[in-house]
Amino acid sequence: MRSYERKDGDQVSTPRRDSALRPAELIRAAGVARRYYLDGASKVDIAEEFGISRFKVARVLEDARDAGLVRIDIAVPAQIDAELSDALRTRYGLTDAIVVASPEGHAESVRQSVGRIAADYLTEIITEGDVIGLACSRTLQETVFALTTLPRITVVQLTGVHPGGVKENSVELVRRVASIARGPAFPIYAPLVLPDVTSARGLLTQPQVADAMRRYRDLTKAIVAIGSWDPPESLVRDSLTKAEATALRARGVRAETCARLLDDDGMPVTDLDDRVIAISAEQLRKVPEVIAVACGTRKAQAIHAVLTAGIVTALVTDTDVARELLT
């Protein structure tokens, strides 16, 4: 058996025998199949070459497959689970779901694997002239570190600066992506969570902060993270006192994205809304494409809450999370 690969990545194998076709039919079917699958000839060109109609070409190709002359295998890279990806996309009504094989080892290995695939995905979907909103997390950090090339785009910071938990804060991530894309950056030099409403309102009126946040209405894509409050794995939660975090969890907070809090059913919990420097939930919903990059089974229920809220249009995650979301 000889095996070939078309330009679209399909594997095409053509056995030499064991066909149910008669000799003359077999020879013609093999010739037609070779011209179509291996040479990339159109059905119209093949019809003219063999002196048959294009409808007959389609029939011969079907006969070739039925007789075992042609076998097509869809080859997906081993690090991506196509079946789980499609099931997750269907379950939550997403435009895209990319499920990455969970490597053995520490959670950091999972973040790195998901980050690399997320970077490839962003390189695929981002186009020149896009205005990209970027949040911050450890997984998004791995994504940004894996980026090597982008078309010229504008990059806008979606949230204020987290107090810790990442090697590079949101300002640095925005500047790094803008540098790769050779485009303008609009960072926000302000904390994520303020101690009171008055302080937050004061910062929102500062020219640099206001200028960046005005860009939210122009966003074509947003790249966001997901934080979990139970179990705790949230940079927003870490920005609060223990008493505040406990009280909010008692109010039903399960997850957050861009510092906007959600309960188990994806409903908003607005207690912090007036104290955070971040894109609002309403503004985020108006962005045509919102891509969440999040992984680790500790975040599975939080990811479910965010997907249920309908804010996200695409998700990059790992197989362990996908299986939990699909059970």
Results as ranks from 00 to 15, higher is better:
D8R: 10
D10R: 15
T14R: 15
L21A: 08
A24P: 01
A29S: 08
E49S: 10
G51C: 00
S53E: 01
K56Y: 09
V57T: 07
E62K: 15
R65G: 08
A67P: 11
I72H: 08
S85V: 09
R89D: 09
Y92N: 10
A97Q: 12
I98R: 03
V99A: 05
V100I: 02
S102I: 03
G105Y: 03
A107G: 13
D120Y: 00
T123G: 15
C136P: 04
S137K: 11
Q141R: 09
V144L: 10
V155D: 07
V156C: 06
G160L: 07
V161H: 08
V161Y: 02
V174S: 06
I180K: 04
A190T: 13
L194G: 06
S199W: 04
D211K: 11
R215H: 15
R217N: 04
A225G: 13
E233I: 12
V236N: 09
R237I: 02
R237W: 12
K242T: 15
R249T: 13
R260C: 01
L262E: 02
G266I: 00
P268R: 07
S280F: 06
A281E: 14
A281Y: 14
E282F: 13
K286W: 08
V293S: 10
H304D: 07
A305L: 08
A305M: 05
A305Q: 01
T308V: 05
T319W: 01
D320R: 02
R323K: 14
